Computed example of a mutant assay.
Amino acid sequence: NAYPRIMYTELKNADDSYADNQARSSEVRFQISIFTNSNTVSKETKIAKEIDRIMKSIGYGRYDSQDLYEEADKVFHKAMRYKKAFFKEEK
């Protein structure tokens, strides 16, 4: 059980805006979670900044961030959520 750990989850990948009954774009959302314990929590901020830099460099915007504590496991959990719209080419 080594820490820190990073886990990503796709939250949404669906057509978004419509015109003339055709999807014009899709929206993709991810949650990236950083898990640390009491020995590694000091690394969380540096990791979060690097994740934020990478996600923004590929066009994702952060729309939420929560600092949580998983009481049962005694683990710190930083959940960062990102989204990006992809516009479809007209045929």
Rank of each mutant, 00 (worst) to 15 (best):
Y63G: 09
K43M: 14
K83W: 02
D15H: 00
A72K: 11
K74M: 05
M80V: 14
D73T: 11
F86D: 12
T40A: 08
K46P: 09
K83V: 00
D67A: 08
A72E: 15
F35C: 04
I47L: 06
A19V: 05
Y63E: 02
F87P: 04
A14Y: 05
Y82R: 08
A2P: 09
D52T: 04
Q31H: 13
S42Y: 14
K74D: 15
Y8R: 14
R24M: 14
N13T: 07
I47N: 12
M55I: 09
K91A: 11
D20T: 01
D20Q: 15
S65D: 03
H77Y: 02
A23W: 06
K74Q: 08
A85T: 05
R62F: 06
R62S: 12
E89H: 12
Y82P: 01
D67K: 06
K91V: 11
S33C: 05
D64P: 10
V41S: 06
H77Q: 00
T40W: 04
I54G: 08
R81Q: 12
R24F: 03
N39C: 09
D73R: 07
Y69F: 10
L11D: 02
E90S: 10
T9P: 02
N39Y: 00
S33Y: 04
I54P: 07
R53I: 05
R81Y: 10
V28D: 05
A14I: 14
Y69R: 06
N1G: 11
T36S: 13
A79K: 13
G59M: 09
N13Y: 09
Q31C: 03
F76I: 04
I32S: 03
A23G: 07
M7F: 10
Y69D: 11
K78N: 07
A14P: 03
S33F: 07
V41R: 02
E89V: 15
M80Q: 09
V75R: 09
S38R: 15
E27F: 00
A23V: 10
I6T: 01
I51T: 05
M7S: 08
K78A: 00
Y82E: 00
R53W: 12
N39W: 07
A2F: 14
K78Y: 11
D16P: 11
N21R: 10
S65G: 13
M7P: 01
Y3C: 06
R62G: 03
R29C: 02
I47P: 06
F86Q: 09
K83F: 15
I51Y: 08
R5T: 02
K88A: 13
I58M: 03
A85E: 12
I6K: 03
Y60W: 04
I47M: 14
S26H: 06
Y60R: 03
D64I: 05
K46L: 02
A23K: 06
L68C: 15
M7C: 00
